[in-house]
């Protein structure tokens, strides 16, 4: 073991203890901060959809999904989804290779366009799923985004 590694581990031990002391004082805050929504805890697209009660979406050309082919910065990948499917209720965004696949869900009220644009983190090159739920079932389309710099740094 090199000296640098030893010093690092020692420091890690100290900060670990400090963090523990700190955490015990802030426990209610941390308890609340813990993710409890099953869909957002899922590590596979199918599991996330199941948790949301979305069964077997069908591939559809009626969803326009814009995302870059290559993203230089995985921390902020612009995505834009628009559905032309009648009675669209919600749009879901799932990033297949992220630690937790579920990124966001948007629910549209009467009169709101089935359209959304946002930016998501993509940890590594991944297929992104845009799932649209309607009164007549669920549909999806995908885009592959290649990431040259990971999105883990937030």
């Amino acid at each position: 073991m090199s000296l640098a590694r030893r010093t690092f581990l020692l420091r890690l031990g100290h900060t670990g203890l400090a963090a523990l002391t700190l955490a015990s004082g802030l426990l209610p805050r941390f308890a609340r901060a813990e993710e409890a929504r099953p869909a957002f805890m899922a590590t596979a697209v199918a599991d996330a959809l199941k948790a949301l009660g979305v069964g077997n979406p069908a591939k559809s050309d009626a969803i326009s999904f814009k995302a870059p082919d290559i993203a230089e910065n995985g921390a902020a990948v612009p995505v834009e989804v628009e559905s032309t499917l009648p009675k669209t209720r919600s749009i879901l965004l799932l990033v297949e290779k992220n630690p937790h696949v579920m990124s966001a869900s948007f629910q549209f009220r009467e009169g709101t366009d089935p359209y959304v644009a946002t930016r998501v983190k993509v940890a590594e090159s991944s297929v992104i799923h845009a799932v649209v739920t309607t009164d007549d079932g669920a549909f999806y389309t995908t885009r592959l985004v290649k990431v040259t710099l990971g999105g883990c740094g937030g």
Partner: peptide
């Protein structure tokens, strides 16, 4: 909207 941690920092949203 329901969001998870993989929405980017300083989030942008358009509708």
């Amino acid at each position: 909207a329901d969001w998870g941690p993989s929405v980017s920092k300083n989030p942008y949203l358009s509708f």
